[in-house]
Design a protein around this nucleic acid. Structure first.
Length: 1029
RNA sequence: GCAGGGAUGGCGAAAUGGCAACCGCAGCUGGUUUAGAACCAGUAGUCUGAGAGUUCGAAUCUCUCUCCCUGUACCA
């Protein structure tokens, strides 16, 4: 193609030139800038806040962005004032880890990553209003994160009004009535006092008390400490007992930490779920996370002690079935009540459970363990003694850390009782409990239970609670699993707290002095004394006179005080960002009243389901708090939420020899086997030799394929050396017996190390490893031994997994944009399948989407040598029909977020218009608008060529008109007993009887019936005819 | 264990009670053209995971079973 021709973009579809031009046009004209004042109705479309990682985007990331962009563009065509902002959640661990390794300031790497991200986003043609961009790590932004924190600190939760209120109100109540009329969500161990007491307290004491009520408070908390990361993690940052990021072990540790009293909002967070249009699985996981259970608390006296055991139970109706009590090993009463005889056993048990890591306890739920304390509790009604045990199946962190054990009604209690031979009384009428506990509630009739005899579950429960209350030994209670959220992190790259300490008590810095900027440090690791990284800062003290951050040397604890060394967690900055977008550059307020009143809330929120119990729960909490304070008009921030499905990639694995089994027949690990062998020393030597020769060895997958199939398609694979001649002969040359087995495990390799073949225009990955590239890939592979197959090739094992950098199976969108353009990529990503389902990526298929765009272009360029040619003629009836059925379908599809089906609708339309040789403006103009949300660049270009000035983006969406689709006749499928046999064209205005007559008179009907008389003829006008008989 | 989702050509999928497989990829045949490619015309496949039920009619609704995916788990 000559260069001259290439410049004339009207001649052929030059997507590179088109996309570049229009991206420049949009940026220059601020086409997508949203105004905070408009006569149009508002619509707010938001993508979940991206963290700008160093790896950049892969093809899985834009899926949600493309969907939300189509919707935003569609809403603009529909006359809405659309807010579609984007920004960066730019504080976070990866940048800090990188800083620790390289010494580079996280701000520098973050800025570089954002640049890459922005370039990649821009190249996809998204209609973001970039004038509203925010970054959580910029002081202008985190000023307001700090500001919200101060508001939360200055609030308490009043149960009477069921909302957050200013702490001043609480102080006023204390001053007039003491704690008498205070009904607050607060710490468990609060003291009661009178108004006079309050006035007599010292200032420090008052502050201490208030901390027990504030919605964010400082307290010694059992936290999940991750030694490898040097920080505390929230529950949702831990997966399977190890850190979500990096997979490091996590231990429990007591530390003084900021916490958020999210538990105050447990019920409202639950109730709010009924008011939002969010996916059910997401709602379910929040419901489970909050974990409401209704029941009763019951207090058991302990024989010979003043202390009492309080338990929470959801089955107070089974209280006569209690045959023992179980305390968590960590329970504070354990040490006090244990008898001298049982002391040794109990202490040994506590020590043993403490040693078991969280991970072991999770992996091993079957083993029953516990110890008897020697002490007895007293049953509230029967007054009989009940033995008190400890067991690690009772969790210290849930309820009171103690349970009343009812073995006949709870399987865990049942197993425990069986194991320790404790009595299992049956309190259910007509139920056999000799094999397992009976936990069904609905059909239960209580027996052997004094005043509860003969009652069903619900009535028994009410009566039991009533009787407990009468005794003063219990009450009806609702318990939540949701714990207060730890809000401190021992990290550098996060929001600093606007907090300094006077006599150990936290003080807020006045809002007018915000932001408190993150100080500079020499290194990003904890200090030698174990303080968080901010402990390395030299200028990190607060001067109350100057109202400024000053050098640590000036700390005198009179006018200059130390500042908080922790920083805020990742979710701090993302919990209000959707509101800040409404007025992102406001320096005086978090957002103006006009802005929040106009935009209200997010209408459509699109993002991944991994945020279900983290970001999406915390944000709802902050929003409800802001609502209580009258700052926002809605107490739920997002009306509708969609989780886009993930894109999967085909990972490649090399099969590595990871272990040896000396007997050759068993599938046991080598450690266990040594014990069985006569000559241990010989075995050790043998293993050593094997390790030396096969320690870093990989084997081509085709040797293993058969064995893999046989072993239930699971790794590790156990193969006998004898079965693989290459291995067997190598063993023999090493003077080793081939009567051994190898244990083989898969190790990820980058799919870029596979050899590629060109197939048509696309590049396809094979299952073959390029060995030279493999040796050079990573240092540890340099000396690797590859065992090739008979054809001297090395095959890898392939498996479909979530596309992820860590799995080395990512496909980069840059190369695809380069070859096919953003419009092709956008269409293809939507074409793959339903938005919410996960689907595999296959780059080869993109040619279909690209081919469609070329055909679309040709519709408008039917002139000589592909020149632009559009006629002013009236389109044919068929063309009108094609257009209007397309309008109808595309509109329905977008409203239902069914983007994949509208792409195929476009393809059909273009194929039909092509064969109709349609080039009428009256059809092609609306068609360009229909396509524009999906493929905006080509649509803009065609719009311009059609002679329009300015962007297509706010042109009215074409109006569907039914009249073009009205048909006068219908080709009826004629079925016999439900099977379609032939078709018959009949006018649509025939009545049922007329249709039946016409069908029965038809010769083919006679042929089908072969003389039989039909029992019944079903006629559904406009649809189908079915003849039975 | 519990909760949710799913199973349709070789692959991704469409059809939500009425003609199964629109559309695309891959395949095959032919044409045209090329340095490579592109383009055009045509074409095959299989019977909706298994079994039962409701119905004139079921991929679709109901029940049972099998398998897969995702989330979650000693929560009293």
């Amino acid at each position: 193609m000559a260069n001259i021709e290439k410049k004339d973009i009207s001649m052929h579809y030059d997507f590179k030139e088109i996309e570049k031009n229009w991206q420049e046009f949009w940026a220059k004209n601020e086409t997508f800038k949203a105004e905070n004042k408009s006569d149009k109705p508002k619509y707010y479309v938001l993508d979940m806040f991206p963290y700008p990682s160093g790896a950049g985007l892969h093809v899985g990331h834009p899926l949600g962005y493309i969907a939300s962009d189509i919707y935003a563009r569609y809403k603009r065509h529909k006359g809405f004032n659309v807010l579609h902002p984007q920004g960066y959640d730019s504080f976070g661990l990866p940048a800090e880890q990188y800083a620790i390794q390289t010494g580079q300031h996280p701000a520098v790497t973050t800025a570089a990553n954002i640049k890459t991200y922005r370039r990649q986003l821009d190249q996809l043609g998204f209609s973001f209003d970039w004038s509203r961009e925010v970054r959580t790590s910029s002081p202008e932004y985190y000023k307001w994160t700090q500001w919200v924190f101060i508001q939360i600190f200055n609030s308490w939760y009043n149960k009477d009004t069921d909302k957050a209120e200013d702490v001043e109100r609480l102080i006023a109540k204390f001053s007039t009535d003491g704690t008498a009329n205070v009904n607050a969500v607060c710490d468990d161990d609060i003291e009661s006092f009178s108004a006079a007491d309050w006035k007599s307290f010292t200032d420090v004491k008052k502050q201490e008390i208030l901390l027990q009520y504030r919605l964010t408070y400082l307290a010694d908390t059992e936290v999940n400490w991750c030694p490898a990361l040097g920080t505390v993690l929230a529950n949702d940052e831990i997966v399977n007992g190890v850190s979500e990021r990096g997979g490091h072990p996590v231990i429990r540790k007591k530390m003084t930490q900021w916490s958020m009293r999210i538990s105050a909002y447990a019920q409202r967070l639950l109730d709010g779920l009924n008011t939002v249009d969010w996916p059910q699985p997401l709602k379910d996981s929040q419901t489970n996370w909050i974990g409401r259970s209704q029941g009763a608390s019951a207090v058991f006296n302990i024989n010979g002690h003043d202390e009492k055991i309080e338990v929470f139970t959801t089955r107070p109706d089974t209280i006569f079935g209690v045959s023992f009590m179980t305390l968590a090993p960590e329970h504070e009463l354990v040490a006090k009540i244990t008898t001298p005889e049982q002391k040794a056993e109990v202490e040994a048990y506590i020590e043993a459970t403490a040693k078991r890591s969280e991970r072991d306890r999770m992996a091993d739920v079957k083993t029953i363990s516990g110890a008897f304390t020697g002490a007895y509790a007293e049953h509230p009604f029967t007054k009989k003694p009940i033995p008190i045990w400890i067991g690690d199946y009772v969790l210290a962190g849930y309820g009171t850390g103690a349970v009343m054990s009812v073995p006949c009604g709870d399987q865990r209690d049942y197993d425990f009782a069986k194991h320790f031979k404790i009595d299992i009384p049956n309190i259910f009428e007509g139920v056999d409990i000799s094999e397992e506990a009976y936990s069904d509630k609905d059909q239960t009739i209580i027996a052997n239970s004094d005043f509860l005899n003969g009652l069903p579950y619900k009535k028994a429960m009410k009566l039991a609670i009533y009787e407990l209350e009468k005794l003063g030994q219990g009450e009806g209670k609702i318990n939540y699993r949701l714990r207060d959220a730890v809000f401190s992190r021992q990290r550098y790259w996060g929001e600093p707290f606007p907090v300094y300490y006077v006599e150990g008590m936290p003080q807020m810095i006045a809002p007018e002095h915000l932001p408190i900027k993150l100080p500079e440090v020499d290194k990003y690791l904890p200090t030698e004394t174990g303080e968080p990284p901010l402990g390395n800062a030299e200028v990190w003290a607060w001067d109350v006179n100057k109202s400024a951050v000053v050098s640590n040397e000036l700390i005198d604890n009179k006018t200059v005080f130390p500042l908080e060394l922790n920083t805020m967690p990742g979710w701090a900055g993302s919990s209000q960002y959707f509101n800040r977008y409404m007025d992102p550059h406001n320096a005086d307020e978090i957002f103006s009243k006009e802005a929040i009143d106009y935009w209200q809330d997010v209408d459509l929120y699109i993002g991944g389901s991994e945020h279900a119990t983290g970001h999406l729960l915390y944000s709802r909490f902050w929003q409800k708090f802001m609502f209580d304070k009258g700052l926002v008009p809605k107490d739920e921030f997002a009306k509708k939420l969609i989780n886009q499905g993930m894109i999967t990639g085909t990972s490649a694995f090399t099969c590595k020899i990871t272990d040896f089994i000396l007997t050759g027949s068993e599938t046991e690990a080598s450690d266990d086997l040594i014990l069985d062998l006569g000559d241990q020393e010989e075995a050790v030597l043998k293993l050593k030799k094997l390790q030396e020769n096969f320690g870093n060895t990989f084997i081509s997958f085709d040797y293993l394929e058969e064995t893999y199939e046989k072993q239930f398609r699971k790794f590790p694979i156990f193969v006998r050396a004898k079965e693989i001649p290459v291995l067997s002969s190598k063993l023999l040359t090493l003077d080793l017996s081939d009567d051994i087995s190898f244990v083989i495990n898969p190790i990820h390799v980058d799919i870029d190390l596979l050899s590629k073949i060109k197939e048509g225009s696309t590049i396809k990955y094979t299952d073959e490893l390029e060995s030279e590239m493999f040796y050079n890939w990573r240092a540890e592979n340099e000396d690797s031994i590859l065992i090739f197959n008979e054809d001297s090739k090395f095959k890898v094992y392939r498996e479909v997994e979530k596309m992820s950098k860590s799995k080395y199976n990512v496909v980069n969108p840059d190369a695809i944009c380069e070859e096919y353009g953003a419009d092709s990529l956008r269409l293809y990503e939507m074409f793959l399948g339903p938005l919410e389902q996960s689907k595999p990526w296959n780059t080869a298929g993109i040619t279909g989407a690209h081919g469609f765009l070329k055909k679309l272009w040709r519709l408008y360029h039917s002139g000589a040598e592909g020149a632009f040619a559009v006629s002013e003629d009236e389109p044919s009836k068929d063309s009108y029909k094609t257009l209007h059925k397309t309008i109808k379908k595309v509109e329905e599809d977008i409203e239902n977020f069914s983007f994949n089906t509208s792409v195929s609708t476009f393809m059909i339309a273009v194929n039909e218009l092509g064969s109709q040789k349609c080039n009428s403006r009256k059809v092609l103009e609306p068609l360009a608008i229909l396509v524009s949300p999906y493929a905006p660049h080509i649509a803009e270009e065609l719009w311009k060529q059609l002679g329009h000035e300015g962007s297509i983006s706010t042109v009215d969406f074409p109006k569907f008109e039914e009249k073009y689709l009205v048909e006068s006749s219908k080709e009826y499928p004629v079925s016999f007993n439900g099977k379609m046999r032939f078709k018959l064209e009949l006018p649509l205005d025939l009545s049922k009887d007329e249709i039946e007559a016409a069908v029965m008179a038809h010769e083919k009907t006679e042929k089908q019936l072969q003389g039989r008389t039909p029992k019944k003829v079903i006629v559904v006008p406009g649809k189908i005819i079915n003849i039975v008989g």
